[in-house]
Amino acid sequence: MKSAKNIRHLTLDELTQYFEQMGEKKFRAKQVFEWLWLRHAHSFEAMTNLSKELRIKLAEHFTLPALQIETTQYSEDGTVKSRFKTVEGFAVEGVLIPNDERQTACVSSQIGCSLNCKFCATGYIERKRNLDFDEIYDEVVLINQQAQRVYSKKLTNIVFMGMGEPLLNYKNVLRAVERISSPDGLGMSPRRITVSTAGVAKMIRQLGDDQVRFNLALSLHAANDLKRNEIMPINESNNIKELIAALNYFYEKTKNEITFEYILFKDFNDSVKDAEELIKIYRQVPADLVNIIEYNPIDAAKFEKPTQEATERFMNHLSKNRVNARLRRSRGKDIDAACGQLANKNSIGVDA
């Protein structure tokens, strides 16, 4: 027997064709589509303007798998971390980061990660699978609901900086962005969405060819190949020279904003010499900003946070050389929700 198809994987045209074949009126397809993407129904039973018979028929022909919130944790600084569970029981995490001007969702694109970055908790988790585009959409919807419930504000920004490498789940990430930004989805501007990559040069170029409208962030974290190879194995096949060329190609094709992300590690990449190497890269790419990020220790890694003096020296050198750099203070460290800490730990949470 052929397995039932996920109804959210159908386009509106495909759904309309299905209803016509069943002898149902075409407008029923639009009703169902709105339940799926505008009203965020997670069951056929919830589609109350459809007849009971039609809902039963849909349940016989289709599945409607959706992410559910398993636990939610609240940080002292207002950050909210959720562990989502997939229909087959895998766990994946997402974070709501609030401040006065923004409500930002940090979302995941994979269950685990295959890149093995040495400073990142997710890098020590085996990649189980990619998230489907509708699961990524669910993350955003659920975090948006949290933002409205906890802070009475809707999401303003989305960053693909959670678990996994977005460009190794390329089609699902692009289709998720399309749904998130569509008027019959969440209607969010692509300019308020940033996809972060550890550096997959071929796929950065593909983003340019596909004329995407969202922003791009490169997780650089070391400004020469020797050091970057040590902490990010992907650099061995995607070196800095290749990444610079790919970023320039991306910008030439899209004119979208590019950001560098650079975590400071004590006695590894926090010297004035390291800052000089970062400046050289910055001047080769039309980057808008360099985010200098506080390191958040994890159990599996040996790295430490630099001293305040070293951080100030590094930042001052960038400023003196007219680099648009910002020191980003980490949020949610007390609940392992900060940059590099997402690891599906078995911690005590609050039911959603």
Rank of each mutant, 00 (worst) to 15 (best):
residue 188 M to A: 13
residue 233 P to I: 09
residue 278 L to R: 00
residue 193 I to H: 13
residue 205 R to I: 11
residue 216 L to P: 13
residue 299 D to S: 15
residue 322 R to N: 03
residue 209 D to P: 05
residue 269 N to F: 03
residue 200 V to A: 02
residue 204 I to K: 06
residue 217 A to C: 12
residue 207 L to S: 08
residue 203 M to N: 14
residue 206 Q to K: 15
residue 249 Y to C: 03
residue 299 D to N: 12
residue 290 V to R: 01
residue 260 F to A: 05
residue 209 D to G: 09
residue 198 A to W: 01
residue 271 S to P: 01
residue 226 L to I: 14
residue 300 A to N: 12
residue 301 A to T: 14
residue 295 Y to A: 06
residue 223 A to L: 04
residue 295 Y to Q: 05
residue 243 L to I: 05
residue 236 E to T: 07
residue 264 L to P: 11
residue 206 Q to G: 07
residue 259 T to G: 06
residue 218 L to E: 04
residue 297 P to Y: 02
residue 251 Y to K: 11
residue 306 P to H: 07
residue 244 I to G: 00
residue 316 N to D: 10
residue 189 S to V: 13
residue 212 V to L: 11
residue 320 K to F: 03
residue 218 L to M: 06
residue 224 N to R: 08
residue 221 H to S: 09
residue 281 I to Q: 03
residue 320 K to D: 00
residue 271 S to R: 05
residue 274 D to Y: 04
residue 314 F to C: 02
residue 243 L to Q: 04
residue 234 I to D: 02
residue 196 S to N: 01
residue 287 A to K: 13
residue 265 F to H: 08
residue 264 L to I: 11
residue 192 R to S: 13
residue 229 N to K: 14
residue 300 A to L: 13
residue 284 Q to I: 04
residue 194 T to M: 06
residue 283 R to C: 06
residue 284 Q to P: 00
residue 311 T to V: 14
residue 183 P to V: 11
residue 305 K to T: 15
residue 288 D to T: 15
residue 226 L to Q: 15
residue 224 N to K: 10
residue 205 R to G: 08
residue 250 F to W: 01
residue 212 V to N: 12
residue 316 N to P: 05
residue 286 P to W: 10
residue 245 A to G: 02
residue 303 F to C: 15
residue 291 N to R: 02
residue 266 K to N: 13
residue 321 N to T: 01
residue 251 Y to T: 15
residue 244 I to K: 03
residue 208 G to C: 05
residue 193 I to E: 11
residue 204 I to W: 03
residue 233 P to D: 09
residue 256 N to R: 15
residue 276 E to I: 00
residue 248 N to F: 05
residue 196 S to Q: 00
residue 233 P to K: 10
residue 205 R to T: 09
residue 222 A to F: 10
residue 193 I to V: 10
residue 242 E to Q: 12
residue 226 L to A: 15
residue 264 L to F: 10
residue 280 K to D: 07
residue 314 F to L: 02
residue 310 A to D: 08
residue 210 D to C: 04
residue 185 G to V: 11
residue 199 G to I: 08
